[in-house]
Design a protein around this nucleic acid. Sequence first.
DNA 1: TCGTTAACATTTTTT
DNA 2: ATGTTAACGA
Length: 728
Amino acid sequence: MLCLKSNMTANLLDGLNPEQLAAVTLPHQSALILAGAGSGKTRVLTTRIAWLIQTGQVSPLGLLAVTFTNKAAKEMLTRLTAMLPINTRGMWVGTFHGLSNRLLRTHYRDAGLPQLFQILDTADQLSAVKRLLKALDVDTEKYEPKKVQYFINGNKEAGLRPEHVEVFDPYTRRLVEFYAAYDAQCNRDGVVDFSELLLRAYELLARNDMLRTHYQERFRYILVDEFQDTNRLQYRWLKMFAGEDSALLAVGDDDQSIYAFRGAHSGNMNEFQRDYAGDNVIKLEQNYRSHGNILDAANALITQNATRLGKNLWTSEGKGEPIRVFEAYNDQEEASFIVEEVKALHRDGTALVDMALLYRSNAQSRVLEHALFSAGVPYRVYGGLRFFERQEIKHALAYLRLLANPDDDGAFSRIVNFPTRGIGARTLEQLSDAAQAANTSLWQAARAQFDPAKAVKGLPGFVALMGAMQDATQGLPLPEAIEHVLHMSGLAAHYQAEKEGADRLENLNELINAATVFSNDPEAMAELDEVGGPLASFLAHAALEAGDHQAGAGSDALQLMTVHAAKGLEFHAVFVGGLEEGLFPHEQSMNEKDGIEEERRLMYVAITRARRRLYLSHAQSRMLHGQVRYGIPSRFLDELPSELLKLVNAKRNSAVPASHDSYAAPKSNARNNTSPWRIGMNVRHAKFGLGVVVNVEGQGEDTRVQINFGAANGMKWLALAYAKLEVA
DNA sequence: TCGTTAACATTTTTT
DNA sequence: ATGTTAACGA
């Protein structure tokens, strides 16, 4: 028996390198794992959990494992069940938000929430803010709803309630008032937004000694994935669960911190060392993913960043192929080059799913998609609207939310006149006033005015409808209840009648399907069904897990996504396009503090996605916002050691392609210009350095040229008579 | 109340 | 270029 057990343990630990082994078998103490890209981070995390359970150091219920995304949480559970014959039911493995939701559902009374509290996603929250500002009669020019939302979330993520926010000016004072009013509105509606989920959970434990002690004694081991992406509130949240006897393991890579723009605070890693880990730091630097040249390039790039904990990836693999660099005239040429290379690689046996086109911003996908479509290459774009974010789905869910909680004013406003039933702005304004006067929800106000005699159309009709819906769906299984709602509400008929409604109708059917799948998945039900019943569970599921982007998984298709979306993934061949100053690094980031460093980390992530082959490309000009823009090559290209690179645009002869003139020829100003300076030309200036001619004005002595010198020196008009320009 | 048009902005994104 | 939202007229 003992023999069998040690054998199994050995199997579990087989094939780990010394650092990985050390991390997996750490004693009961806190530690920080600096895990480089492709160093087997997830494997270490899951193997450690399995090892801890298998060796009897902790029961499955005694550990807390937190991830950032649902995908990562699911992956962890899947791998865990493959390693150990255990029941993962009841285990606290999940996202910050998912676990907060579970905590709040369980202790909803202590948290001061209604049992069936609903979760607002980002869009719901924005409309809640808009509704609030309207009710307060606020000038939305001066206080943009988006800004107000940003302010509220920013403070929540710093752990600050309205009364704690420091106010130095009248503008901020007003914002704080909105924040307080927003919180009041949410409480009245019985809804909770994403950051509130975390803050409430944190406050619940901070306030309630008994609960805190309970959880702290329960969780002897706490593991956190992607620690560099945590924000300040999330770190404080973690601390609440960590008791005297808890060992915390944080896994992260400061070089892959690319979410500072949404509040991630990689300084948490330093603080974690100070608070818990001390010198107990393990670096995983052996990379199992990429060939040497790719890693060398990544290392060379990232060393240009001043603020890092320090880490150097290495591989036992060979150098491999050089990194291919392509310089295109314009974005279309760039796209067709990429398509040709993809086709060639595919012919040689690389599956399309094993190749990715990465870009800095979503707008860049269009040209690529067009070229791929014309060439008949199957592709799949990640990003964009997700299932539960589609308007028809949100409408349907709003009906369900209102059934679960009639006081949810957000849900009420969304559907009271959708499909249209003759309830206009005027009626709603009166209703809103009545509700405000009586200090009740819109639904209560509507019901107070309810007159059964008029219950045919308008507001009374709506009240009658909801009542009928409530009766009809009572006690029905979830999918059938949803089907009733879709028909009784008129949503189904509405989209049936609409010309372009077929897709939406299909999505609504898919919603019934999703409910069926959800109801049959005991794991999912158990996860969320702590309190509240299947409807509440399903709605929480819809809010917390927006659903995979689109069907089409499984088939062999080229992968298109932003660099952000590619984090955590790997591909045989990777193409990174649009490597131009202003695009990558993005110009908006150049003004931000530490913006360039974050962009560089982003580039680091992009490079380290590639296993065997990496293409980097840039274009001299590209269409942006319906205008031709000229850009100079990204500084990141210069930061890569040239011996690792190979220029591959030699195929083209020196003659300018016919299409080039139409782009280069200036539309205005320089019609009759005879000077040698042409738009799109690369030039060098003694002081400003490398630039691109963007515009030419005047003739002879008076010629002036406008030059884009990139981020450092910006746009300049120069008089040719004085400026010393040379062709670069 | 609803449909049309004009103005507008447009990095990255999970929960 | 393009998609979304706010204002305006029928």
